[in-house]
Design a binder for these strands. Structure first.
Lengths: 337, 337
DNA sequence: ATGAAAGCGCTAACAA
DNA sequence: TTGTTAGCGCTTTCAT
């Protein structure tokens, strides 16, 4: 039913009366043929709807014009945005992208590396959940670029990340400048990855402005429940026991959102009583009311940069730098002055 | 730098002393060899990290074990969920998936069909933005399955969709049963696709319960602005001129969210004064406060069903049915009684 | 139980 | 300007 065999270069050659080689030249714009020949062949290609067979091409060239993208979860807005822009970038360069959802499962991720390897991908971009990259991750020496996370046992794989430390620093500094002195730090310690740098930036800002670090202001979201729920509960408990604050830095937008609800429950005005800044610039910071100030990680820039580095490596250009830290942006909305 | 040539079946043959044919048999578990031979060869494969070359395999078999997925926008939660489950399904069946973002651009989408064609994909799943499929969409007769949208000039391509008509019917019926008599219908008429069925279900429910259809209760979101903003403005204007309502059916969650904000601005209590039901069961219906009742389209079921149909077609089994309508679920949350 | 060889569609080196 | 041919890695048919 579906076995209509596609027309091949040989067929076009036969139909045109020219040889396979000439047809190939025309297809690939290699010159060495007359205008007339070109026209004839192109017409045939058009009318018969000839499409070249990439498997044969790949086999011949040992190059598939294909790359692999390994991400933890495509339904997460951050990763989806990465995927979108990696795909766009490579589509423009005539590459197709295999998208692989590792689902935070190291076994699955290793399996995907093998699959991509056997599919002769020319390169791999990964947001890896692997703590270590095994010695023979791929049988060929496939170029790899890491985004956001980095295995402990590698130091020559290019790495692109956002400046999270600076992000949390800027967020905290902004709160201080707007008068906050008792700033909650809502940390995210999810199973897959911790965000130590974000707490570090928070502390750096306090230090800079001479505000003592107070461990009672640290609330920790563990990832056991959806983080907006956990954050809401944690903050509600905090407020319940009579503790106060005038600013909140949350290292995820969902935690920021949860704290917003807790504040509203206790009739605290935002930003009059408490100002909030989140992290990631996800959709819900603009969908809620009031809208939430946040740190944008410049996902697009990260995706493009990683793609460019990978493409350079594929073309055998040494990447300029091993580490690329993409600057962040502080996005001001209604939850801050 | 990256040109380490991978070890081939020929190398394994040479190393083992056996012929290429025997090695191939072992690799593919075809039998016809002794336990001893098998062990020797498997050991070599293990130690040298041999991975088979899929381009050669594809060329030989005229089959790539690859499928293409064409979607409008991977950052949209609905499409991302489809992508996730299509990918999972096919990974289990040893297929890899090319994900293509058509970005609601018909030209781009056509280009992707060509690309997938030349990559010898064994099948394509698409949420197409094309009004018509051109005659020679693919040069081979590649199996195609459509999800959610369907071209006007086709009737033999299997199609999987959710029962949107029933969804809006159930939503409206529920509101009526909970006492609503003046139910707003917030329609979505975005550029890419209209949602006529959703209005049809709304009207069907009114009819069933003998409530006259009142065109003044129709608010139309055009897609010019983000739909939650547009909905908020539309409803605010509506309330401003003194009009009232006791229920809202919005054919998108974002529109539901926008109307929620408008109601809150006018100090209307939800669900006491006005009840709301949205459509799509997106993340923000549980992130907002109060949480919003909505229609779940069973995205996972749609993705799996479409994948199964495609796999059947690839394996030359006729799909049982041309049209699959996946039932929806009414999800009750705080915005309704 | 094992091997030799053809051929999938394509490109490029060499020939004319 | 055009053609002939080898060979990319693999599976499979036909011998042995």
């Amino acid at each position: 039913m579906f076995d209509k065999k596609p027309i091949s270069i040989k067929d076009i050659a036969k139909l045109s009366g020219y040889s396979i080689a000439t047809v190939s030249r025309v297809i690939n714009h290699k010159g060495q043929y007359s205008k007339e020949t070109e026209q004839k062949i192109l017409n045939l290609i058009e009318t018969y709807g000839y499409v070249s067979n990439n498997a044969a091409k790949s086999l011949r060239a040992s190059k598939s014009n294909t790359i692999g993208l390994i991400i933890p979860d495509i339904t997460n807005e951050f990763y989806a945005t990465i995927a979108l822009h990696v795909e766009h970038f490579f589509a423009d360069a005539s590459y197709s992208v295999f998208v692989c959802n590792a689902a935070n499962d190291p076994q699955k991720e290793l399996m995907y590396f093998r699959t991509l390897d056997s599919r002769l991908v020319d390169g791999i971009i990964c947001i890896s959940g692997l703590q270590y990259f095994p010695k023979n991750l791929t049988s060929r020496n496939i170029p790899i670029v890491c985004i956001d996370r980095y295995p402990d046992n590698q130091d020559n794989i290019p790495f692109v990340a956002s400046d999270d430390m600076d992000g949390s620093y800027q967020a905290t500094e902004y709160l201080i400048q707007k008068g906050c002195r008792k700033i909650l730090n809502i940390e995210s310690y999810t199973a897959s990855y911790d965000k130590r740098l974000r707490t570090a930036g928070y502390e750096k800002a306090l230090l800079k402005y001479g505000i003592p670090i107070n461990k009672e202001l640290y609330l920790r979201v563990t990832g056991r429940d959806p983080s907006h729920i956990e954050a809401e509960i944690l903050l509600a408990e905090y407020l319940q026991r009579g503790s106060t604050c005038d600013g909140i830095f949350a290292s995820s937008d969902r935690a920021a959102l949860g704290s917003l609800y807790a504040l509203q429950r206790y009739n605290l005005k935002i930003p009059e009583d408490v100002q909030i800044i989140g992290f990631d610039n996800t959709l819900y910071t603009i969908l809620c009311s009031p809208t939430i100030s946040t740190i944008s990680r410049n996902t697009v820039a990260m995706a493009k940069k990683a793609s460019q580095i990978l493409l350079d490596m594929i073309c055998d250009k040494e990447p300029e730098q091993r580490q690329t830290i993409v600057p962040i942006d502080l996005i001001l909305r209604q939850s801050t002055h």
